[in-house]
Amino acid sequence: MKLNTKDMVLIALFAALTAIGAFIKIPIGVVPFSMQFLFCGYSGVILGAKKGFMSQILYVGIGLLGIPVFTEGGGIGYVLKPTFGYLLGFIICAFVVGKLIEKKEKLTFLNVFLPLVLGLSITYIIGVSYMYMILNIYLGVDISINGAIAAGATPFIIPDLGWSTLVAITSLKIVPQLKRLGYI
């Protein structure tokens, strides 16, 4: 895939927006509530599968290099944080959302919302599984899978479905305009 300057700017922009979403957070338990999923969802919808994937890879890569763009900083040691799995989930989420939406000739609320919910589900599966493993194996915290779900998914379902709804509604206006103007 050959990227032009516009593509590179858009990829960097969505990586930056995801980083900004990490700073807008409410610390509750092991997993803080943030706006990262909002921008991850937009990256898949607006950029498509490959560029959305690249934007989230760039975001995670920058954080792993030591730039403090994650909710709790950055650096290679972040892979041992219980929340790192959600970052991996964002990468897959952006790709899946983009892939499913790219196939649609016309955007409707449901054909944007349902891929977002699938991407969110993937993020939760990867995030909760990773958190469970890090807490139990690395940190020695005895937590059941139900406890991990209760800490890492349950409190976030309603807000994340809200973000998915917002992305789906606004994308119906934003995406056609961006296409018309030649930005995507």
Rank of each mutant, 00 (worst) to 15 (best):
G85F: 06
I184R: 15
I92D: 01
Y183S: 03
L17D: 04
I62E: 03
F39T: 10
L88R: 12
T170Y: 01
L110D: 01
L135E: 09
K51W: 07
S164I: 07
K2A: 10
T108G: 14
Y138P: 00
R180D: 15
S164N: 11
I122S: 03
K173M: 13
T83Y: 00
E72K: 14
I46R: 13
L100F: 13
G89D: 07
L58S: 01
K103T: 14
S55F: 12
P159M: 13
W163V: 11
T108R: 12
V141Q: 12
K99W: 13
F156H: 05
N4V: 08
L38W: 14
K104E: 15
I67F: 14
A22N: 14
I174D: 02
A153I: 01
G73W: 02
S121H: 06
Y124P: 04
I122D: 02
M131H: 04
G41D: 05
G147W: 09
M8Q: 10
V141C: 07
V141L: 10
C40N: 15
V167M: 07
Q36H: 08
F113K: 03
C93N: 15
F14E: 01
Y124I: 01
G48I: 10
A15V: 11
L64D: 04
G63T: 04
L38S: 13
I76Y: 07
F14Y: 06
I169C: 01
L38I: 11
I143W: 02
L116V: 04
S43D: 06
I125G: 07
F95N: 03
W163R: 11
